[in-house]
């Protein structure tokens, strides 16, 4: 069998694919963060908690109401998004005029409170959530066994990422949004309700986190800590991609998933550090991130 640095090529293909799967979660989560930061200038540290809430929402729907995975994909983002809208209306909007740091502190505090409440109620071992029957099982690709569910995650994540990018960069609605962040007064003068637009944008970003949460539920345990563990990595992804750059967040998400996957083969001990090493190197060369523009 052919080998690359002592690792069979076949095994390497498997690892690349796994990297892409993890990358699709990074991409979905960092996309939400990038949308919120790009359009609201808020560093949303509650993102991990909102992702966790999405997963819990799916669990509740299934176990308390008998509503399955596919409906959860639609309901959880709306429900958690509505919660996001509430937070934005009641708290975050008072901070737009202040330094980034205040938004960061508020959202970080909220994240701790939400996680703490869930942990108190559900413990840290988490709750089981089965893969939906339609996507159970998998396909033997020759070089690896690919669970159908993971294949679905890649496809779904790509579609959502591309659709979001398209809406924001290529449609009229997207142009209002971008204009609204550049010069809110002027856009308002044209009769656009900017505060409402911003609220809904935050709700949308939060909804994306919840969607990722629902998709993660069958793979990882539905666990109060699931978001806290992931959010730091996702922030690194956003920073590497360039704060606020939608395309940057998507591409870096997938790219770093693959880099992390390869590290797990060649030097597994470093697999949770490698992303930060990449971050340090990128920031030294391009301080605004790979796709960011210096303001």
């Amino acid at each position: 069998m052919d080998t690359i640095f002592g690792v069979p090529t076949q095994a390497l293909f498997g690892q690349l694919l796994i990297g892409l799967i993890n990358g699709s979660f990074y991409a979905l989560l960092s996309l939400g963060l990038a949308v919120i930061f790009g359009l609201l200038n808020i560093i949303n540290f509650t993102h991990g908690a909102q992702y966790m809430m999405g997963a819990f929402c799916a669990w509740f729907l299934l176990n308390k109401l008998g509503v399955g995975y596919w409906w959860a994909l639609a309901i959880a983002p709306v429900a958690v998004g509505a919660f996001g809208v509430l937070i934005e209306r009641l708290m975050i909007r008072h901070l737009y005029q202040l330094d980034h740091l205040y938004g960061l502190l508020l959202t970080f505090g909220l994240a701790l409170i939400i996680q703490g409440l869930f942990r108190n109620e559900f413990g840290s071992a988490g709750l089981p959530y089965q893969v939906p029957a339609e996507l159970a099982g998998g396909q033997n690709l020759g070089f690896m066994f690919l669970p159908k569910y993971r294949a679905w995650v890649i496809v779904a994540s790509l579609v959502v990422c591309m659709a979001t990018w398209f809406v924001i960069e290529k449609t009229k609605l997207g142009s209002y949004l971008r204009a609204g962040t550049e010069n809110p007064q002027l856009v308002q003068a044209f009769g656009v309700n900017v505060p409402r637009m911003i609220t809904l944008t935050y709700g949308f970003g939060v909804g994306l986190a919840a969607l990722a949460g629902v998709m993660a539920a069958p793979i990882y345990q539905v666990n109060p800590l699931m978001g806290g563990d992931l959010i730091i990595v996702v922030f690194a992804v956003v920073v590497i991609g360039g704060m606020g750059s939608i395309l940057g967040a998507i591409l870096t998400g997938f790219g770093l998933g693959v880099i992390e996957g390869l590290t797990k083969v060649f030097y597994p001990e470093a697999s949770n550090t490698v992303i930060f090493i990449v971050m340090a190197i990128v920031l030294m060369i391009k301080p605004a991130g790979l796709f960011g523009t210096q303001k």
Binding site: I18, I21, R150, G261, K264, V265, E269
Partner: peptide
Amino acid sequence: VRHPFPGTDFSSFLLQAQA
């Protein structure tokens, strides 16, 4: 194979174990 502590995704390590 030694995984970072705590970990989240073990599929990569499981694949190595499978191989």
